[in-house]
Design a protein around this nucleic acid. Structure first.
Length: 281
DNA sequence: CGCCAAGTCCGGGAGC
DNA sequence: TGCTCCCGGACTTGGC
């Protein structure tokens, strides 16, 4: 669930909570969270490091440690929280960063899908998912032309292409559904078949939605909270996601939920008309 | 009980 | 041949 707005909100809260703090000791309770190096080296190398900044690229959180960088991905349900070291430990807490001053940054993840990679900044391109990220929605480099160029090469449904982090960095299932709804584009439309005017609408919708969601602290659909344990407020602004059967805000017809690109997909059958061009018959 | 949710990776097959 | 693209399965646990 954490997509760009949620991860950005976490980044901002973590900046306030742990920037300039020193990591004294690290405990890893679930080894699979740590991808590289091995768990022992991970803990050894982190001990004594200071968190200079907390950055974000796409859905990745980057703890800048100076020479090294800790790259963390929350996947679906990862979350961070700062606790007094002797506070009771919640279920599914897998990694403990014991900081100076008697507090511990804890990583909790019910699904155990999240990942952590500790490496040198100069090795950062070795992380496949990070190195190949496309442009972010609010980056000045994100233009309608950029999107149009990416789309023309892709015959997959627009939903799948927008989910591709190599094309747009940071979108996930929620914001893709919202973007396509606002742009009045059917999720199964082949990306290559989109007229420029529709690409423009997708571009504008994406920017508006992501910017607004960041302002509201992201969407709390299921479990998402920021580093202070606070939920976001954009879930109240969602138009289609999670609203199956409820009236479309534009036309009043019930929101449809189907399956596109292997994902649950919410859209309005009336406002987002199915593609007709390019269908062989 | 069985399916669904999610983001990313990986493997296989298709196509250029 | 080799690359890119596309799809579907795997991973995991809890909720319905």
């Amino acid at each position: 669930m954490p997509e760009l707005p949620e991860v950005e909100t976490v980044r901002r809260s973590l900046t306030a909570l742990v920037k300039k703090r020193q990591i004294e000791r690290v405990d890893v309770k679930l080894a699979r969270i740590v991808r590289r190096p091995d768990v022992d080296l991970f803990c050894t190398n982190l001990a004594g490091q200071r968190i200079h900044r907390v950055e974000r690229k796409g859905k990745f959180i980057l703890f800048d440690l100076g020479e090294q960088v800790l790259v963390s991905h929350l996947r679906m349900e990862g979350r961070y929280g700062l606790y007094p070291t002797d506070d009771p430990i919640a279920l599914h807490t897998h990694v403990f960063f014991h900081l100076d001053g008697g507090q511990t940054l804890r990583y909790q993840d019910v699904r155990q899908f999240g990942t952590m990679d500790l490496l040198l900044w100069q090795e950062i391109d070795q992380l496949e998912g990070l190195a190949t990220l496309g442009v972010e929605p609010l980056d000045p480099a994100m233009t309608t032309t950029y999107l149009a160029e990416k789309f023309t090469k892709r015959n997959a449904p627009i939903k799948a292409v927008l989910l591709d982090q190599k094309v747009v960095a940071g979108l996930g299932n929620i914001y893709v559904d919202e973007t396509l709804y606002e742009a009045c584009v059917h999720p199964e439309t082949k990306a290559s078949a989109l007229p420029f005017a529709q690409v423009e609408r997708i571009h504008e919708a994406m920017i508006r939605i992501i910017a607004t969601s960041i302002e509201l602290g992201g969407s709390s659909i299921k479990s998402y909270v920021n580093g202070y344990g606070e939920p976001g407020r954009f879930q109240f602004a969602l138009q289609v996601y999670g609203r199956k059967g409820q009236p479309c805000p534009r036309c009043g017809q019930p929101i449809h939920k189907g399956r596109v690109a292997g994902r649950g997909t919410h859209y309005c059958l009336t406002c987002q008309r199915p593609p007709t061009e390019g269908i062989e018959r």
